[in-house]
């Protein structure tokens, strides 16, 4: 079974002998030997055939080694980063708790200072979720469904903190409207995400969201006293008209595209 061993040594012969290269060669030869045994168990008796099959399964060992070294560095970097994040988070948590206790003991406003804890823990999570959405869009690591859920989740978390702040520090009576506003923000953000990432059926998204946003805005403004119920309902009619205009523009564009295609074909 010498052929594939010679192949490994010849392929990597020009590289500087290091510990990691030695370990890579050992590991590769071990894998190849295991594969050779597997092929023997399947019924191949010809050693040349076994060697050739194995060699074809391991093309370009130099590139393979390079990828393994790169992967190792990336793994070490990730471990280091994870350690930093964990330590940093623990430190941050301790400092936050210390700050909460210090503020509470100084001001004796225990009924309000807890907002520091809530905001201090929830807002970084929301920001991390938003950052995750942007990163995953760049690197395509998450499905678009998961990204959209994270986007919605981060907006709702921010809205929750905002609601609690309004409740504690203001006398706004309808502070719960923040949640309806958050739903509007989720729909707007989702539609923007669909547009930026060129989602399939994004047109259907806009057509559904526009009237929903209009209804929510109408209710928020109505309950806040900023918009009369009548004729404020026209906001909803306007939304329906916007939908119709969008459909007509899309149909018109479709006709123009097929005419242009027909023209260029002829």
């Amino acid at each position: 079974m010498a052929n594939y061993i010679d192949y490994v040594n010849e392929s990597l012969g020009s590289m500087k002998e290091t510990k990691s290269l030695y370990l890579f060669k050992q590991k590769t030869i071990e894998q190849m030997t295991k594969r050779a045994n597997e092929l023997v168990s399947k019924g191949i008796k010809d050693e040349n055939v076994i060697s050739q099959i194995i060699i074809e399964e391991y093309p370009d060992l130099v590139e393979r080694y390079g990828r393994e070294v790169g992967a190792k560095h990336a793994k070490n970097k990730k471990i280091k980063a994870t350690k930093t994040v964990v330590l940093g988070s623990l430190t941050y948590a301790l400092l936050l708790v210390f700050a909460y206790l210090a503020l509470s003991f100084k001001t004796l406003m225990w009924g309000k200072t807890w907002i520091l804890l809530v905001g201090g823990f929830v807002l970084p999570v929301a920001i991390a979720m938003l950052a995750g959405v942007f990163k995953s869009k760049k690197e395509s690591t998450l499905s678009s469904a998961a990204s959209r859920v994270m986007l919605a989740g981060s907006i709702m978390l921010i809205a929750t903190v905002l609601f609690l702040c309004l409740l504690l520090f203001t006398s706004v009576s309808n502070s719960w409207l923040v949640f309806l506003g958050a739903v509007v923000a989720v729909l707007v953000a989702d539609a923007a995400f669909a547009a930026i990432t060129k989602q399939k059926l994004s047109l259907v998204t806009y057509l559904l969201y526009i009237p929903a946003i209009a209804v929510l805005v109408y209710v928020i403004l109505g309950l806040s006293g900023l918009l009369a119920w009548h004729p404020g309902w026209m906001v909803i009619v306007a939304a329906a008209i916007v939908d119709i205009v969008i459909i007509m523009l899309k149909v018109g564009k479709g006709k123009t595209d097929s005419e242009e295609e027909e023209w260029s074909k002829n």
Partner: peptide, 13 residues
């Protein structure tokens, strides 16, 4: 037969 077996295994792989 031995050649046939060898070729078949290579194709199966």
């Amino acid at each position: 037969i031995e050649a046939l077996k060898t070729v078949l295994i290579c194709f199966f792989e």
